[in-house]
């Protein structure tokens, strides 16, 4: 049962991500992305990381993607009639590159001496929190500064009047 759910979710995550490649309308793409993100959240949960799973939903699906949709709605993008999705000029090289990337990553993953099944251990929010605010405190502070910088940048960029 557990395995079935895991692989099904993985397929959904990958399928939804693949759909973004071919859909025409950004809002539909965003929906597929949300589906992929939610599936990924479930994967996190199944792997035994409930905190990251919850944060994934709250942060990505709940905040970032809403922001995405908001921008799309403000821009009011409409699909330009019923045209087929044309492959952009010069698609061959990137496609080749992506294929090569897939191969190389597959080699990396399957070459690694990591076979064998996992023991399922759930690492709860308490452990993660203690790790974050203990060992990785400096990184947390730096991340806070980064977020502050982003905040300032956005405020600056979105000023009404510019000289």
């Amino acid at each position: 049962m557990y395995k079935l759910i895991f692989y099904l979710t993985a397929v959904i995550a990958i399928g939804a991500a693949g759909a973004i490649l071919i859909v025409r309308h950004p809002v539909h793409a965003a929906l597929y992305l949300i589906a992929s993100l939610l599936a990924l959240a479930l994967l996190f949960f199944l792997l035994g990381a409930p905190l990251v799973a919850a944060l994934q939903v709250i942060l990505y699906a709940g905040a970032i993607m809403v922001l995405f949709l908001f921008v799309m709605m403000v821009m009011d993008l409409r699909p330009a009639s019923n045209e087929r999705l044309a492959l952009p000029k010069g698609w061959r090289v990137p496609t080749l590159l992506v294929a090569a990337l897939a191969v190389e990553l597959a080699v990396v993953v399957f070459q690694a001496p990591l076979s064998g099944d996992e023991i399922w251990v759930s690492v709860g929010p308490k452990a993660v929190g203690q790790s974050l605010f203990g060992t990785y405190l400096i990184a947390v502070e730096v991340a806070a500064i980064l977020l502050l910088a982003a905040l300032v940048a956005v405020l600056y960029l979105s000023r009404r009047s510019r000289p």
Binding site: V93, P94, L97, L101, E104, V107, V108, Q111
Partner: peptide, 20 residues
């Protein structure tokens, strides 16, 4: 931008391939 992305990817691939 896409071309630049292609260059970056090529570089990454080359490094990864070299290492592999």
């Amino acid at each position: 931008l896409s071309r630049y992305a292609v260059s970056v990817t090529t570089g990454t691939l080359a490094l990864l391939g070299f290492w592999l």
